[in-house]
Each structure stands twice: as structure tokens, then as C-alpha cells.
Design a binder for these strands. Structure first.
Length: 260
DNA sequence: GCGACAG
DNA sequence: ATCTTGTCGC
């Protein structure tokens, strides 16, 4: 099964674009950018198939929520490091399709994805996968370093993290061969732990880092943070409602009552 | 046996 | 991802 997944990744990888398709590289304030999207999945504890997929769209640069979509889904693929996309991407594509049908005018111009882009075992993480399938510019934002291609969370790495003094400070993440796969970013002045940015699709690493930083009120950029908060809350209510249905069974229907 | 392991 | 309250500090 994983061999098939690797084949799919290799095929889709050919379509990844690592450069800006908008004039953002040369625009300090991202002129023309008005909507940034964020996606996330939250899982129901103790249930390996129930999850909530959420997509939010925020205004830019104000970061106000313009659109929200939370949807309970039945996850079928297991979580395997390196193949996260095969577990989560179908529901995110569905969410994008619903947005396209309901509010095409709110289509985000960029999507922030929790997970990696080209910083990946085979150079094709969730952010690339979703980018190619939707055609949207995507940025990978991981909360933990994926230790691949010579990257490791060793003493040197921790030392580099300690050197990130101010919010906005970064250091490059280079592969053994010297290619820059991503950037560690101190996204929030008060947070010691960086986030790991990598190119997903249709955007350069430089623009990606700058944009993510400009979306941060806290450590996790607001679009992803809002998607996360909302999907967790949606699950909380979902679990609450289903447990109430068990302890308080539905009353017999009228048909059943009058049947006698 | 030990360490890794995006979410 | 999730298990989990308070708590120390700015």
C-alpha cells in the first residue's frame, strides 16, 4: 500500500511550483492579498476514525474570520509518518469544494497547512499535496521538526534555536546535500519554540516565511490556530451531544406510539 | 535494545 | 493527534 502512495507522491510532485505566482516577493505588504485560509483536522479521543475537518478563511491583514466550515468525517487511512496527506487531504479537498460552491468569492489566495511541504522524506508533504490538488498556493507550517535528510533535533539545532532572539528571526534548514528545505521561524516574541516553514506550492520560501510571520498573533499562525480551535470545539460539542443521546434515549416516535 | 515518529 | 490543572512568570 505504501508503495502505491510513494508512486502517487512521485507523480504529483512533478507539478509542485516552488516560486511565487503572485508579485509578493517584491511587495513588503503583500499588496492585493485579502484572504488567507487555514486548514486542520482534530481527532476524537479514543476513536481512530472520527475527526473534524475544518477550513477557515481570514481577512488579510486584519485576520478576522470571514468563513468557517467544520465537518465530521470518517478517516480511513492510518497515520503513517511521511504519508500524512493520504489520511487528511481528501477531507480538505472536500472542504475547498464546498467553499467553491457556497462562497466562491471567499476563496483564499493562500492556504496555511499544518504539516510540511517539501521538507519531507520524498520532498512532497501535505502542503504540497494539497496545493497540487487544489491549485492554490500553500505553505507548510509544522510545529515539530521532521528529522529527515540530515536534519535532526540535536545539540547544534537546539543551539540555533537559542540564537533566535527576536520574533521574526530565522535559520535555514539544509539537507545533507546543501539544499534549503525550510526555515525555522521564531514566530512570536514570547515563544522559545520555533515553527518550521516549508514551501508547499506556488510560493517561495522567503515569501512563505514573511507571510506566516505576518499572520502570527501567537506561536501558531492565526489561520491554522483558528481552524484548530474551531475543529476542537466542534468535536467537543459533537461528543457532548452523542453522549447525551445515549443517556437520554430518543422518545418513541408518534407512529410507534399510535401503532397500538 | 534504542531512537524516531509532520498530524 | 490525545491524555490534562494548576502554576510560575512577565
Amino acid at each position: 500500500m505504501q508503495r502505491g502512495w510513494e508512486r502517487d507522491q512521485a507523480q504529483l510532485k512533478a507539478d509542485v511550483i516552488e516560486q511565487d505566482t503572485e508579485a509578493w516577493q517584491s511587495s513588503p505588504s503583500f499588496a492585493g492579498l485579502e484572504r488567507v485560509g487555514g486548514v486542520d483536522l482534530s481527532y476524537v479521543k479514543g476513536d481512530d476514525t472520527s475527526a473534524c475537518a475544518s477550513l477557515v478563511v481570514l481577512s488579510y491583514p486584519d485576520l478576522e474570520v470571514l468563513y468557517e466550515d467544520c465537518c465530521m468525517v470518517a478517516v480511513n487511512a492510518p497515520y503513517v509518518a511521511g504519508f500524512l496527506a493520504f489520511r487528511e487531504v481528501p477531507f480538505l479537498v472536500d472542504a475547498m469544494q464546498r467553499l467553491e460552491e457556497r462562497r466562491p468569492g471567499l476563496r483564499p489566495q493562500v492556504l496555511l497547512v499544518d504539516g510540511n511541504g517539501i521538507l519531507h522524506h520524498r520532498g512532497f508533504g501535505l502542503a504540497c499535496h494539497l496545493g497540487v490538488l487544489t491549485g492554490l498556493p500553500c505553505i507548510g507550517v509544522a510545529k515539530n521538526l521532521l528529522q529527515v535528510d540530515g536534519l535532526s533535533n540535536d545539540e547544534l539545532h537546539k543551539e540555533q534555536i537559542r540564537d533566535l532572539q527576536a520574533g521574526g528571526d530565522t535559520f535555514p534548514l539544509s539537507s545533507t546535500s546543501g539544499r534549503i528545505l525550510g526555515m525555522a521561524l521564531r514566530s512570536y516574541a514570547k515563544s522559545t519554540k520555533p515553527v518550521y516553514i516549508s514551501v508547499g506550492h506556488k510560493m517561495s520560501l522567503q515569501s512563505a516565511v514573511r507571510l506566516v510571520h505576518s499572520c502570527c498573533k501567537y506561536r501558531v499562525p492565526e489561520p491554522i490556530r483558528q481552524a484548530d480551535i474551531r475543529s476542537r470545539e466542534y468535536i467537543r460539542k459533537h461528543v457532548e451531544a452523542s453522549s447525551a443521546a445515549v443517556s437520554q434515549p430518543e422518545r418513541m416516535s408518534e407512529d410507534a406510539d399510535s401503532e397500538h
